[in-house]
Simulated scan of single mutants.
Amino acid sequence: MKATAIGKRSSRGISNYALYSEAQSADDPEFIHIEDIRSRARLFDWTINIHVHPRMYQLIYVRSGHVRIHIDGEERTEQAPCIITIPPSVVHGFEFGQENTNGSVITVSQLVLLDEQFQRDFPFGDEILRTAQVLSLKRHPEDTRVIEQIIAQLEEEYRDSRTGKKQMFEWLLYALLLKVGRRLHASHRTREEDHYEQLYRRLSQLVEQHYREHKPATFYAEQLHTTTTSLNRACSAVAGKNVSELLHDRLTLEAQRMLIYSSVPVSLIAYDLGFGDPAYFSRFFKRRTGVAPSSFREMRDRG
């Protein structure tokens, strides 16, 4: 099921929830907290009201079931498996399905994420540390398996008190955030590529109608209600060229077809393709193919 935004909610009267003492320390044994969704949600009739954590980062992994998510006034429903990331001070709340919903809630002191080395080295900071994200894992079983393993290790460390617990937590948390960041980054790139493919297809259809008219890139951008920058990005992403090259390639292809499959004089081919000067057409064709139109036709005749 694809999640969609379905409404708005006022953020007035937001509760401030705290799991830690006011004077936090990164060495506090409770700099991280883990619990399963069912044990917490059942206490509140499966509804966690709108609230905010000023100094804590949360990652919610929904293993099974579904959840209605409220983030900064927007609402959506997501099916498991999915990951929800909640940076500090982001308003949020959840309504979990009662029948079979389960998973894990990982809460981390902001101090851990403000570590200078962590901030310097972590490559997905803007994507998942400063912006709330909802990431579906339904189509990514391999990523889900790894995330499950890391969370299971975090939960095991949480239950025990072995030497190096804090360091192990930080290492596992870093691995988990990296895995989530990679999947999120790949998801964004896929959506971008899908957008570019659609734009490129529409552009190609329009080029078929107008390539003989030698319209500039701005014409195509206006017709498609976009910008020349977006058109160039789409062409580069899909075909490895810009709009001008796409237009020139189409003219060259049609010229080659006419030279191969007809005996029309080169000058008439030039006019048919919208060139006002046959000599200019010949220079254009040679730049694109390496040979003059007449030589191209002779090569066809010899072949």
Rank of each mutant, 00 (worst) to 15 (best):
T107H: 05
S89L: 01
I86A: 03
T85G: 10
T101F: 04
G103L: 09
R76N: 03
V90E: 02
E127N: 12
E75G: 03
I106E: 02
G97Y: 02
G93W: 01
F96N: 12
N102K: 00
R130Q: 15
I106R: 04
I106C: 01
D121G: 07
E127R: 09
Q119W: 02
L114E: 15
G93R: 02
D115T: 13
T107D: 08
Q98R: 08
Q79S: 12
Q133P: 11
F94H: 12
V112C: 08
S104G: 00
D121N: 13
E78P: 01
L114W: 13
E95Q: 06
S109Q: 07
S109K: 02
Q117N: 13
Q110F: 09
T107P: 05
V91H: 10
A132R: 07
C82R: 02
L129N: 03
E78K: 03
Q110C: 00
L129Q: 04
T101P: 01
E75A: 08
S89R: 04
E75P: 00
E75Y: 01
F124W: 06
I128E: 04
P81C: 03
L114M: 15
L114I: 06
S136I: 04
G97E: 10
V108M: 09
I83V: 13
Q117Y: 11
T107Q: 08
P81A: 02
E95D: 12
T85R: 10
E75C: 08
D115H: 12
R76Q: 13
D126S: 13
L129D: 07
N100I: 11
A132H: 09
G93A: 05
S136E: 10
T101M: 04
N102A: 06
Q79T: 10
R120C: 04
C82E: 10
G103H: 10
F124Y: 15
E78V: 15
Q79I: 09
E127S: 14
T107E: 11
T131A: 07
Q133A: 14
E95G: 00
A80G: 07
T85Y: 04
Q133W: 09
V91F: 05
E116G: 10
S104H: 12
V90W: 05
A132M: 09
G103R: 01
F94E: 09
L114K: 12
E99I: 08
F122H: 14
D121A: 14
A80H: 12
R76H: 08
E75R: 13
V112I: 14
I86E: 04
A132D: 11
V90Y: 12
E99V: 11
R120N: 11
R120K: 14
S109T: 14
I83T: 03
R130W: 14
P81H: 02
E127F: 11
Q110M: 02
S136Q: 07
C82T: 10
F124Q: 08
